[in-house]
Design a protein around this nucleic acid. Structure first.
Lengths: 334, 334
DNA sequence: CTGTTAGCGCATTCAT
DNA sequence: ATGAATGCGCTAACAG
């Protein structure tokens, strides 16, 4: 591998001069600069970022910890997309680390990013609890921001949306359409997001004077397939309902498949709604009513929090109802 | 930041000893080791990977260049997922670099990864031509593998599937179902993948004694929305067709939306098929007939090629027909 | 404007 | 088994 020294020798200058012409902070005589550039071209020299970063004690990179198994779905691919875009916008390289399947591994992923000397770290936690995250933040010097968790002790180190209230917004819409027998496909157990959405569902029902019927509740695990299974389960119970709300769009689409298989029409026979506003929802038939989670804004906020600590704190973005075709007025409504 | 020296001092040993207990290659007296570990715990020391990598001249990382704007779709999210999984399996960290919007920027992304001293680099090119890729491979010492391009001069540095023949396989199925008026929604212009699929479409038609009708061909740009527009365009032309083949699943779903809007039923009125076997296809209604592109296998091969150069070369995986519900026998068939 | 020197933090000789 | 010294490739004073 050709180093800066090789270039310096070939150009008949010192390493420092090569470094200078490369970094352009200090003036170098045009003639000398030309010789150096020439030597660089001839040797095919490429600065070693490792050495550079070590010398500067600065890496120009931000890390993102998420569970690899999740990259796949539309939700996380959108997250990675925005993370990469906004990192780039701030001149930083995005480094991904896999949180895998346990709190310990999520910690290790953070450690890896820390040892890589990322300037800042973002984490979309799956296993680490709020208390553990608080502790990690407190024991670390590098800026750390948690995505999708509310950290009461660290308001400037988290971005999130209020899932419960988003769900209540959705429920208000559903109830307004005359639905009262609304089934709910919950997210994975122990998922804070899932629990908040479930809580919103139950709260909205009670506010409307309706006691949640356990027969109308079934648990999925976020995947489309789990939504499909949940839909079948719901149908098999033979309890009446006119509307299904799934805790994310993927599961909603799974539910739709189960309905279609049972010969039901959407939205004429069953109304359906989800959460997240995945791209597919817009093109699905019928187009899926959902709650838009402002991923772009969340990630942008997260990156700015962590890269521009002096920036004014931003308010939590809110989920927004997106009315499309999959929810119709309830025909049985009196 | 606490360094190895701080730990050494606190433990009353030399830096070398700390390094040794950390790397475990050389024996260290248990008692001393314990003291060192103790000191590490007390100081919260975390080895600096930069320094470590520089000293070892080795980074344990592999780079992946793709166009950020593409992260979003199911195709690329699946790619990133598998890339991360297989890198991990080989103990390597995946680093993403954005190829952005031009050949120059794709080159820069490679350069970045090179300067980061990734051990190996994978690229899913969008703008760089085969000739340029050949040249890049020849001028570089670090292993480089190109995904989704056939490099005749570098058989061991590329993984790909034969899109034309995959398309012919699909067409054979469609023709077999009695369709003769088959519309085609092509991919983005100048996309080799798109062109190969288009060529397969036309070739299959000619082989069946049917002259491709330009009225049945419309160009999209891979996105669902472009598929939707293409579908509307097709319908607006008022030329008869019984089947639409889209160059990827996203566009197929866009076409489906256009059909539904026009009051057409799938597959009774129009058969529909796509490519890539995106997850959604399985749950779409009707479930989408498609060609499975073995992303998992491709990426695994790519990583092994580049990390285990002595491994025996693998044969190109083939796209496989996945028959589902969106294609029905042509009722007009004589 | 340019060369010299001294680190950045760690791994690895070579001695002991 | 452990310590001292050297170097990885580069940047940043410090001189001149």
């Amino acid at each position: 591998m050709v180093t800066i020294l090789d270039v310096a020798r070939l150009a008949g200058v010192s390493k420092a001069t090569v470094s200078r012409t490369l970094n352009g902070k200090v003036f170098v005589r045009e003639e000398v600069k030309a010789r150096v550039l020439q030597a660089i071209a001839e040797t095919g020299y490429r600065p070693n970022q490792l050495a550079r970063n070590l010398a500067n004690n600065k890496t120009n990179s931000v890390g993102l910890v998420i569970t690899n198994g999740l990259y796949n779905g539309p939700f996380f691919s959108s997250m990675i997309y925005h993370a990469a875009t906004h990192s780039e916008r701030h001149g930083r390289q995005l480094v991904l680390a896999d949180g895998k399947h346990s709190a310990r591994e999520e910690r290790e992923a953070i450690d890896l990013l820390l040892s890589l000397r990322c300037e800042a770290i973002m984490i979309y936690p799956k296993y680490l609890t709020v208390a553990e995250l608080d502790e990690i933040i407190e024991h670390n010097k590098t800026p750390l921001v948690v995505i999708n968790r509310e950290l009461e002790r660290h308001r400037s180190q988290c971005v999130f949306v209020d899932h419960q209230q988003s769900c209540e917004t959705m429920m208000a819409h559903l109830l307004e359409q005359g639905h009262t027998r609304i089934a709910f496909v919950a997210g994975a157990e122990a998922s804070p997001t899932g629990e908040r959405r479930l809580a919103g569902y139950q709260q909205a029902l009670r506010n409307a004077g309706i006691e949640p019927d356990p027969q109308l509740l079934v648990r999925g695990s976020w995947s489309t397939d789990s939504g499909y299974q949940a839909g079948r389960e719901l149908l098999a119970r033979k309890v009446p309902f006119t509307c299904v709300l799934a805790a994310n769009d993927d599961m909603a689409i799974g539910v739709a498949k189960a309905c279609y298989e049972a010969g039901l029409r959407l939205p004429q026979d069953i109304s359906l709604a989800g959460f997240d506003d995945a791209d597919i929802g817009k093109y699905y038939h019928p187009a899926l009513t959902t709650i838009h989670v402002p991923m772009d804004e969340m990630i942008r906020n997260a990156i700015e929090m962590v890269l521009l600590p002096e920036a004014s704190p931003v308010s939590a973005p809110r989920g927004e109802l997106v009315r499309r075709e999959s929810v119709a007025a309830c025909k049985n409504a009196h």
